[in-house]
């Protein structure tokens, strides 16, 4: 089950905890992976760890030209882009009353606009192939909101609406577009929380623990697989029961 042999997957934010786990899971299922991210060193390290079928494709998603070029670079390196995982994301948290236009815009640009452009950039190849998988990594806060994250929550909710709209348009072409919405996951992003914050979060998670990057990767692997052909426009919530949506 979930055999991705012969498929080529582009993963953004592959230098991070969740992105790296996604890349490993898709690679383990047989896919060729294009590892994109801003920091080249961890991408190289991951590529070396994976060995064959791994390409490093550095890209700063806040650079519009670099975003426009990435789908083409990925297709040239791997031969195609059959699977796109928009996982990269940034946070610029601030209280709504204090949030600057720059904090708002930078999060929208990287988390939402770059996702739009990358989806658009890979569609031509997927339409011709009559097969494609797009998985956009949203967040629980896109559904529930979160104080201090007006920008991030807006971008993550925006990804869901965008995914559904695109899913409608390309469903007849064998292309599925879905979102995965992680809850609190053990990554560098959540390591920054202090003990009190962590304890407060744990109290809200029925599972009583944070999730692992591998648990997100498993959801992405499923949605990327041939077996998930009839699943489109959905959001798979992976959050330990924190929000049952």
């Amino acid at each position: 089950m979930f055999d991705l042999t012969g498929k080529c997957a582009l993963i953004t934010g592959a230098s991070g905890g969740i992105g790296g786990a996604i890349a490993k899971a898709l690679h383990a299922a047989g896919a060729t992976v294009g590892l994109s991210g801003t920091r080249e060193a961890p991408l190289q390290a991951l590529a070396e760890e994976l060995g064959e079928r791994a390409f490093v494709l550095p890209c700063n998603l806040s650079d519009a030209e670099a975003v426009a070029a990435l789908p083409k670079q990925a297709a040239e390196a791997m031969g195609a882009v059959d699977i796109l995982v928009n996982n990269a994301g940034i946070t610029r948290d601030n209280l709504f009353m204090r949030m600057s236009d720059e904090e708002w815009q930078s999060v929208i640009d990287v988390n939402l606009t770059a996702t739009f452009k990358l989806c658009k950039g890979v569609l031509r190849g997927m339409m011709k192939a009559r097969w494609g998988r797009i998985v956009n990594i949203s967040s629980i806060v896109g559904a529930t909101g979160n104080p201090g994250q007006g920008n991030y929550a807006a971008a993550k909710a925006g990804m869901v609406g965008m995914s559904k709209s695109l899913a409608y348009e390309v469903a007849t072409r064998g292309i599925t577009v879905n979102a995965v919405a992680p809850g609190f996951i053990e990554t560098a992003m959540t390591d920054k929380l202090n003990d009190d914050q962590k304890a407060a979060i744990m109290g809200q998670i029925p599972a009583g623990r944070m999730g692992t990057p591998e648990e997100i990767a498993a959801a992405v692997l499923y949605l990327s697989s041939p077996e998930a052909a009839y699943v489109t426009g959905t959001t798979l919530h992976v959050n330990g029961g924190m929000a049952m949506l």
Binding site: R124, M127, K128, E169, V170, T172, R173
Partner: peptide, 9 residues
Amino acid sequence: SLDTVELVM
């Protein structure tokens, strides 16, 4: 409408 996009492609 998507057919017309594909025709153009």
